[in-house]
Amino acid sequence: MENEKFGMDARQQTDLKDPSRRSFIKQSSLLTAVALTPATALKAAEDHLDEQIAGVLEKLPLRMEVNGEMHNLSVEPRATLLDILREEMDLTGTKKGCDHGQCGACTVHVDGQRVNSCLTLGIMVNGKKVTTIEGLAKGDVLHPMQEAFLKHDGFQCGYCTPGQIMSAVACINEGHANSEGEIREYMSGNICRCGAYPNIVNAIMDVKNGGMEA
C-alpha cells in the first residue's frame, strides 16, 4: 500500500475502515491503491443520488514542493493546479486568463518544465516541484528575466506577465531563444492582449545575450 507515502491524515485513515471502501479497493486490486475518492461519495455521484452525501469526504492528500517549500494539502481530484495555487495557497501571481489552455497566463514550471496549470490536475503534481512567479526572485533580488521585463516594459496591464516570464525563462532554458524569430514562435503560447510582444522579445534577447543563469 502506498498510503503511507501520501501521509494520509486521520480522517482518511478512518475512512479506510469503511466496508464499502475496502471492497472497492479489493475489486481494483490491479490498481495501485492510492488514496481514492470514498466509494460512498462516488456511488452518490454515479447514481445522481443526494449530492449532499458526496460532500462529506472527497479529498485526496497532495504533497508538492512549491517554490522550494514542501506543502501537504488535501484537494479534490478535480481541482486544477491553477485553482489550488490561487484559491488554496493564495499564490495569485499565477493567473487565470482562459482556464482552457488557450492563453498561457497560468504558465508555471513543474519539475522545471513550463506547463499550463489550468489543465493540470493538482493531484497529478503529487511529489513534484512547482515553481511559480513568486518563486523566481531570490528575496529582493529579481531574476534577470524579471529585471529585463521591467527594463524593456514587457507588459502593460501586467496580467499575462507572470505567465510570460515563466515561459520566457523556460524558453531560454530549453534552448529556444537563439533568434528573435525562434523566440516569437516559442513565446506564442502566451497571449498578451495589450500587445507587448516586441518588448517581450527584446527582454528575452537581452537576458539571453547577458548569459542568464537558470
Partner: peptide
C-alpha cells in the same frame, strides 16, 4: 466539473482492467 475518482495504475494490465 463532476467529482470523479482518481486512481493510478501499477501496470498496463491494471489500466486495461480499469478502463
Amino acid at each position: 466539473m463532476k467529482q470523479f475518482q482518481y486512481v493510478k495504475a501499477s501496470s498496463n494490465a491494471g489500466v486495461i482492467t480499469a478502463i
